[in-house]
Design a protein around this nucleic acid. Structure first.
Lengths: 344, 344
DNA sequence: CCACAAGATGGTATCGCTAACAGCTCACTC
DNA sequence: GAGTGAGCTGTTAGCGATACCATCTTGTGG
């Protein structure tokens, strides 16, 4: 490989080899080179070997722009996403990446500064202009529904973690089931009802968890307290936790994610309420460090890797022309640790 | 926008408009349309308006593959990265995304299953074949140095968080300074020396923190205990913490990241050693929830957003042909909370 | 009122690749 | 031994944009 140093004249810089160069060196036509790369079985083994030798010799890489121009397919998938520092989105993205890599797709990312209809459309447009073969929208927010209403024709799109009303296939963790499971776990420990610290309204996951919690309570005819609304941060959990700690009625809390749960735990402890002796707490996500919270957090594990894989699958189907209105739900799993105990 | 339904024949699907269509509708040549899009000031305002109207009418998007083919520039930057669920890499990626979006670049991601020389080269190759304009390698690992040794000529590459010996420009947080600061903070509280829980060997950040810690101790002539090696997880911090808790000599611990610090805190507490009364603990990263650890964690904040921005800048320079061997260091900041106190 | 420059627009070639078809070689059949 | 077809390779024609240069306006000074 040749390094270009500042002093070197442009003429000396070897221009990257193109297919024609390979063809010449191998003594064949460009078409044959193309075939060796795309349908090797159609070329006689000896010819193929000569071509491959030439490819290596010249360190040839096909120019994907040229290929895209003629085939219309790029081998790149677009992902539209919001804050990738949040645990959920980051993990989902990671799952998608892995699935894509295994199938030799590359991922292009359009990350949004704000989560709303307009930016989602814009993100999709930017990806589309890059000729991505398909788009996965990771936007677990109400606005996604609108942003996904008028899609460019012919562009396969799937969503991750979207609501029921999306016009596109969806892969998601079953938030309702997870929340219900967490709630039933607390009820089964003898608590008469369960308080809820929710995520921000308009987030699909947040409302799904509220719904699951509510229906589990209603199914057993329990009183349903007003949910307390946080913003996913430990800080908001802490502030809400302080309020909960003041109310002696509160013996069981289902918190919509682990980081807020961490804030709640801290507030309870500061108020002198012991967990789980006085109050039981369940989180959601199972972040890797949840087992090292104080006390170790009972929580609901989401398999983000699986969700990413399912989304990728769905997109592949769509790209292949399969038009099923699929909704792939991934089951979450309750992980019982030490932050939950029997009613005092 | 037209939706294509299953029943529709291919003939009915409107093919996306191309430049020629716009030209025709506006009554100009394709060349003029191209100019309106790329150098509007060279076109008379009335003509420009006509063209833009036609663009809107046909919902025209330039085909980037065609443009790349002729210009050689794609408006896409490649990012090679490893585990994007870790807080550091995820935040760096986020910083790069933001910087890129502000300058209308799109990001393509090649994530690696394993961090070694071979995969790094492969990642760069895959991106290169997509005609990215430049590559940012987020691979704070020794192997990056080798992977970045033989780069394809003419492809601008910069690294984030690399070691001193990289052949490319680097943007990074000054790990050495951060670790030294944390260590001096502990010494200033009267501790006779400071133990260290490090990250995995071969990680640049890990060795930088070890070096900073060691040099701060040596500068004051203190005894330098053998560092204890973790793997960034809370679990490893917990296991190491149990060992530290047994040694009554240990009164101050500098832990190489916040998640391991969380494990250490837990182990100390379980062993009956109070923080900060008996043992002081400092972390590294300042993850958003660090203020809600028990006790709130004193730690070293890394400004990942700034690192991403610097890396992007550096890459832009390289792409413009500026060949300075720059190393942009971002200063970390010590955030003192309640996990550190005077020597017992 | 003409020469001339500056500004606006158009024509043509080209980027690197592959689809579609054409042509050649050779083995095998009847 | 010519016909047949299978298997391999080559030729041609774009894909959709921009670079480069030519051409046609328009404005300006003498």
């Amino acid at each position: 490989m040749t390094k270009v140093r500042p002093g070197q004249s442009p003429a000396e810089r070897p221009k990257a080899a193109v297919m024609e160069d390979v063809a010449e060196l191998a003594g064949v036509s460009a078409m044959t080179v193309s075939r060796v790369l795309n349908a090797p079985e159609k070329v006689r083994p000896e010819t193929r070997a000569r071509v491959l030798a030439a490819v290596r010799e010249l360190d040839y890489r096909p120019n994907s722009a040229a290929r895209v121009l003629v085939t219309g397919r790029s081998g790149v998938l677009g992902v539209v996403c919001f804050d990738t520092t949040l645990y959920g989105p980051a993990s989902t993205l990671f799952g998608i990446e892995q699935a894509a890599r295994n199938s030799d797709y590359l991922i292009s990312i359009a990350s949004l500064p704000t989560l709303n209809r307009d930016w989602i459309s814009r993100g999709i447009d930017r990806l589309r202009s890059q000729s991505v073969d398909g788009v996965i929208v990771v936007a677990p927010h109400e606005s996604a529904a609108e942003g996904l209403r008028d899609l460019p024709a012919g562009l396969p799109v799937v969503a991750v973690g979207g609501g029921e009303d999306l016009a596109v296939p969806v892969a998601a963790v079953d938030q309702h089931a997870g929340a219900a499971r967490a709630t039933r776990h607390l009820l089964s420990l003898g608590h008469s009802t369960v308080w809820h610290v929710s995520g921000p309204p308009n987030w699909i996951d947040a409302s799904g968890r509220v719904a699951g919690w509510r229906s589990a309570l209603e199914a057993e005819g329990r009183q349903v307290p007003e949910p307390l609304v946080g913003d996913w941060t430990a800080h908001s959990g802490y502030e809400i936790g302080k309020r909960l700690a003041r109310d002696p009625e509160v013996t069981a809390v289902f918190v919509a994610n682990d980081h807020m749960a961490m804030g709640v735990l801290r507030a309870l402890r500061e108020a002198g309420r012991r967990v789980p002796e006085d109050v039981s707490v369940v989180g959601f996500d199972d972040v890797p460090e949840a087992a090292y919270f104080w006390p170790p957090l009972t929580t609901v594990r989401q398999n983000f890797g699986e969700v990413g894989r399912q989304a990728f699958r769905l997109l592949l189907d769509r790209m292949a022309g399969v038009e099923d209105e699929a909704r792939r739900m991934v089951e979450p799993e309750l992980v019982v640790r030490e932050s939950t105990g029997v009613r005092p």
